[in-house]
Nucleic acid binder design. Structure first.
Lengths: 158, 158
DNA sequence: TTAGTTGCAAATCGTTTGCATAATT
DNA sequence: AATTATGCAAACGATTTGCAACTAA
């Protein structure tokens, strides 16, 4: 197997399954997705793909920088495709899960206050996308349309 | 039961257990801790405290802004005490788990690019604290001292 | 060949919950 | 007295892992 997939996984072999998975992820650059979401989509083409395979691919894509975890939905981690090449972040619609790359507003801090040597950071912006804003009656209310609510990662239900 | 604890939990009743828990958290403002860590510390004074109680207290303290999840350790979420009152973030030593409050470097973005109405963000800075830097032979190597490795939240082992 | 990948099913294990009891307000 | 918190133990459920078969390189 060749071509696409190489870039998504960085290193390692590129199996038929990994190509399918990478293609689906590549085709959904503006939507946060969970392992189950991804599996469901991939199964449209390859019904026999196993969840474990998806999880393993997810881990590989994350460490290669092809995707990044951006929150959770019902206790499951949701990821976003990293469209931009370099260092960047994501804005996630907490209502529908829409995602867009965002520039990194964090600067200078790499100097490190209090003697810390800063090695990195994780930032995710949350908001309401244009589409969901339109659907929301009261600006300020959490729109009720989305079936993909994303929440800042940390714990399960509430 | 009264006094301390009120501020930590925002609303709700303040039981003996919740006071003990809040006291321990308050006494560890510079260390990331997991539910198990916290339970172990609290049990020094109150051996009978249940893990579920700690988890419930953790949830309450998080929603009241007394603590914030800052990563994970062996698949368990680790929290940091929010020393500062207002909006701020944390710098976490990925080696030993030491934590310090950090100012928010994110500005203006509240305007929202691409039409998003930004409602919030989550930022955690990672680095090596002065103490661990001293313990690290090669500047650049991940020090090997810490027994509390913290990793950016997302998934379990690797 | 040879090492990395897959699918399946079982195992993990941090976290959540139901319930009867105890304690706060 | 009314309501909320606690402890225990069982339940959850997303994610991980062992393993034999398979396959990209």
């Amino acid at each position: 197997m060749r071509a696409f997939g190489r870039s998504a996984y960085g290193t390692g072999r590129v199996s038929r399954q990994r190509v399918s998975i990478a293609l689906v992820v590549d085709a959904s650059p503006d939507r946060a997705f969970s392992a189950e979401d991804l599996a469901a989509l991939v199964r449209l083409d390859d019904p026999g793909i196993g969840l474990a395979t998806v999880y393993r691919a997810l881990a590989a894509m994350e460490s290669s920088g092809f995707i990044e975890p951006v929150g959770e939905r019902n206790g499951a981690v949701v990821y976003a495709r990293c469209v931009d090449a370099g260092h960047h972040h994501h804005v996630v619609c907490t209502c529908c899960g829409m995602v867009e790359d965002a520039e990194c507003p964090v600067g200078g801090t790499s100097a490190g206050a209090n003697g810390f040597r800063i090695t990195g950071h994780r930032l995710v912006l949350y908001g309401i996308c244009p589409s969901c804003q339109r659907a929301a009656p009261e600006p300020g209310d959490e729109p009720g349309r989305g079936r993909f609510r994303v929440r800042p990662a940390s714990r399960r239900a509430g």
